[in-house]
Design a protein around this nucleic acid. Structure first.
Length: 857
DNA sequence: CAACTCTCCCTTTTT
DNA sequence: GGGAGAGTTG
């Protein structure tokens, strides 16, 4: 699924969307034209020999690939080829050891990583690998929950609430409970609840634990009410996905035993970033000493392999605990540990820097990464005056490297600690015309119009989804105000029904104005009509376009004069395209599944091979296995897959909820290869680039201010630095700015302690603080505070004396209000010279060169 | 009921 | 600087 990550990357590829007209043209007849989706290439290779699978691997890697028997912990340093090991191992299992692909569960950190791993394995062993479960914890849990509908309070159509939805719901709860927003900010309640869920503490236990009248008691009360409404709305939040699945398996031992028997191999990547709930899930599936239910027949637990690096644990803030990887041998007795210390990614210089920094962390198991790639280039260091200066250095350096043929744009990445820091880079990169792509940041799915559209779909698919229904109740404006909404909410509360149901009973609300009641009826009719479309099997994209038009949402945007609304329209078109690709993609997959069964499967033989590999425990006979569930039957999986396909809308919504924009990181083989990648250090995990720029190395920025006086958080920041450094293959650049604008005001920051931890002999300093200091002494004191502010603040300084630019068609220009544009044509001469400039979404303008605030780029 | 202004955070990091 | 939510006015 192709999702733009930000407005910016659209601009960089080609400003206007091909389906969106220039503003002056009016709208096309068909705003959402058909798009054909390419069928994915078929993968039909035969299983490779073991020799082939081990090719190019060092002994410990080979050992990991071939390991058979008990649990394994692979401690893999950065760049030691752990993904490769996992991929080859799965191929080995399927190809050589004849393990049924459907009995493999591989957990990756992102959906993107899952897709890549799946693709690589399929390249190695062919289409039958399609039956593997390769996904994130969250996706795997959704899949399990969907299959086990009816066992728990989860219905067929449930909404998955992301952080924004959860926050909105908690806001409603806090309002209704009249919690003092000063003492109990919604944000704090959310964190508290999330921690509870990660620790598998449900709302009743949380209530029981909290002392009467304590602060915790209020939190627990909010938790309970929040949970009640989630359940009423048929919704699960992110943490619920894991917690509910764990509780499900614990509550139904027979069910757990079915999954334990089904999955013969469980592999977990990035194990250092698992939280407690995820750890328990793994334990329930794989531990040898889980109590089977009284009536249940126990099988040998699946073979478990986890891969991770405790030095790369950077998600403690969301509940990840290093304990899981450090105590693996305690949790899974008899576990074997394999160390991968040879690094295949970076030069020795880069590794030495990484080792020196991470070595400052106390209480870690020492590890020494080494490389035989040679020393390579020195690390380049730069101390900038301001963040703009820093960005300029980075842009210039990228350009220089590109000219010297030392790194294409696509092999180059710029990392920073917080998303807000991307701004300075974007400004400078646009100015110098350096193509780039921001990953993360303001995300596609967080845009207001996209969220509105998704809310429509969710409301249609699940009328009990109060948060979604209420979000779009009066969007676009249809005369349903706070009063009307409150009246309906009142009825819902009184009758203990959902807001959506209350809407159907507006006749029971006498206080409602006739006009409001009519509008509400119209809204219900709109929803009903589209619910009927779903029932008739209309695909997600058709429902989306239909509801956008019927609701008047499109019309409102189209008639608006706000230029932002044009962008919103483009984003909606993009969303429709995403939906359409999804629908076609699912159809293609379903068709491909037929091929799989026909060409690659001999179900009887597969089943026989597998049954042989499932060793029942002593005293239990295989014949006693419950007959109704055959975890090894591929047909059941295909049937489950078909069930997902038949509800196109639900499947689409599920996908939308679970993808992250980091899943859109450009792969080397994508066309975006010619573009510099900008992202946060967290997003950078698992990636590698020839040239890496680590920026903002200032105490207070990185390490972040809030980590400065907490040793644990500081250690995590240092691991983040370690992750950043080890992303670089050939050349590493580190930089900091003396002055950085934060909240619109300049801030003076000292050098990051991490910077001083890199041995000086490894760094070639292009510019040091000394140069900066002398500059500050000569000029800074003489400036007025206002001009100083404009130098460091966000307002770009404009030259005082402006020359009339000489422009020809094709030139790129910057306009102070319209932004970036390209010259289409020029006319006139001398002072009367005019230029027609295309400003993309801002439109085509004819400007007088003498007067217009234009700058040639 | 909607449009407008004002104030208050905001900036950690994300499945 | 800027977005979201609250508060105020038409």
């Amino acid at each position: 699924m192709s999702v733009p990550t930000s407005r910016v990357d659209q601009e960089m590829t080609s400003a206007p969307h091909p389906f969106v007209p220039a503003p002056s043209d009016g709208l096309p007849d068909d705003l959402f034209p058909e798009v054909t989706v390419a069928r994915p290439r078929a993968r039909k290779s035969s299983a490779p020999s073991t020799d082939k699978l081990l090719e190019g691997l060092n002994p410990p890697q080979q050992e990991a690939v071939l390991h058979a028997g008990g649990p394994v912990l692979v401690v893999a340093g950065a760049g030691s080829g752990k993904t490769r090991v996992l991929t080859r191992r799965i191929a080995h299992l399927v190809g050589e050891r004849k393990v049924h692909p459907g009995s493999i569960l591989a957990i990756t950190f992102t959906n993107k990583a899952a897709a890549e791993m799946r693709g690589r394995v399929m390249d190695l062993v062919g289409n039958r690998a399609k039956l593997m479960w390769v996904s994130t914890f969250h996706s795997a849990c959704v899949r399990i929950l969907r299959s086990e509908i009816g066992r728990f309070h989860v219905s067929r159509t449930f909404s998955i609430y992301d952080d924004a939805d959860s926050k909105r719901l908690m806001q409603l709860v806090a309002n209704d409970l009249e919690l003092d927003p000063k003492r109990f900010p919604v944000r704090a309640i959310m964190t508290w609840v999330s921690n509870c869920k990660n620790e598998l503490v449900d709302h009743e236990s949380a209530r029981g634990r909290a002392a009467e009248g304590s602060v915790e008691a209020s939190y627990a009360e909010a938790y309970a009410e929040y949970q009640r409404r989630l359940i009423a709305a048929n919704a699960l939040d992110f943490d619920d996905l894991i917690m509910t699945t764990v509780h499900l398996l614990q509550a139904f031992p027979d069910l757990r035993e079915q999954y334990r028997r089904r999955f013969r191999h469980v592999l977990v990547d990035e194990y250092q970033d698992t939280n407690h709930a995820q750890y328990v899930l793994v334990r329930e599936l794989c531990s040898a000493d889980v109590e089977p239910g009284p009536e249940t027949i126990a099988a040998e637990p699946p073979e478990l392999m986890v891969v991770g690096d405790s030095d790369q644990s950077i998600y403690a803030f969301r509940g990840a605990t290093i304990r899981n990887i450090n105590d693996f041998e305690l949790d899974f007795p008899g576990a074997r540990t394999i160390m991968l210390e040879q690094n295949y990614r970076s030069t020795q210089t880069i590794l030495s820097a990484a080792n020196a920094v991470i070595g400052q962390n106390t209480g870690r198991k020492p590890k020494n990464l080494w490389s035989d790639a040679g020393d390579g280039a020195m690390i380049v260091g730069y101390v900038a005056d301001t963040e703009h200066d820093e960005a300029q250095f980075v842009a210039g350096e990228i350009d220089r490297l590109s000219d010297a043929d030392e790194g294409r744009y696509g092999d180059t990445a710029v990392f920073y600690r917080t998303n807000a820091q991307s701004r300075a880079f974007e400004e400078v990169f646009i100015r110098v015309g350096l193509p780039y792509k921001v990953v993360g940041g303001v995300r596609f799915y967080e845009r207001r119009e996209v969220r509105d559209a998704i809310a429509y779909l969710r409301a249609i698919s699940n009328r009990s989804d109060d948060v979604s229904v209420r979000r779009i109740l009066n969007v676009p404006k249809r005369g349903i105000g706070d009063r009307a909404e409150a009246a309906v909410a009142d009825l819902a509360n009184r009758e203990r029904i959902s807001f959506g149901e209350a809407l159907r009973r507006i006749d029971d609300i006498p206080s409602l104005a006739t006009r409001s009641a009519n509008q509400l009826r119209g809204f219900v009719d709109l929803m009903d009509a589209h619910e009927a479309m779903v029932a008739e099997g209309a695909p997600a994209d058709a429902i989306l376009t239909s509801v956008l038009e019927a609701s008047g949402y499109l019309a409102e945007l189209q008639s608006s004069s706000d230029p932002q609304d044009q962008t919103r329209l483009e984003n909606l078109v993009e969303l429709v395209t995403v939906a359409r690709e999804f629908v076609s993609g699912v159809a293609v997959l379903a068709a491909a599944d037929d091929d799989v069964v026909e060409q690659a499967f001999d179900p009887a033989a597969e089943l026989a091979a597998l049954t042989a590999s499932v060793e029942p425990r002593a005293g239990v006979r295989l014949a006693e296995l419950p007959p109704e569930f055959d975890p090894l039957d591929p047909e059941q999986d295909l049937a489950a897959g078909a069930a997902e396909v038949d509800d196109s809308l639900g499947a689409f919504l599920e996908r939308v909820a679970l993808v992250a924009d980091s899943d859109q990181i450009p792969s080397p083989d994508q066309e975006s290869a010619g573009v510099v990648t900008l992202m946060t250090l967290h997003t950078a995990k698992g990636l590698e680039f020839d040239n890496v720029f680590l920026t903002g190395f200032e105490d207070g920025v990185f390490p972040h201010m809030r980590a400065l006086n907490d040793p644990d958080e500081l250690a995590e920041e240092r691991r983040l630095a370690y992750v950043g450094i080890t992303r670089a293959r050939k050349r590493l650049h580190v930089s900091r700015a003396i002055v950085r604008a934060a909240w619109g005001t300049p801030q003076h920051n000292p050098a990051s302690r991490f910077l001083t931890e890199i041995p000086d002999r490894l760094v070639d300093w292009r510019r040091t603080e000394r140069a900066v200091t002398s500059w500050r002494n000569t000029s800074a004191t003489t400036r007025s505070s206002q001009s100083w502010r404009s130098t460091v603040g966000y307002a770009a300084p404009k030259p005082k004396v402006r020359e009339i630019p000489v422009l020809t068609a094709g030139d790129r220009v910057l306009h102070s209000t319209f932004g970036l544009g390209s010259v289409v044509a020029t006319s006139g001469a001398g002072d009367d010279t005019k230029a027609d400039v295309d400003f993309g979404s801002a439109g085509l303008k004819r400007l007088s060169l003498k007067h217009a605030p234009l700058e040639k780029l």
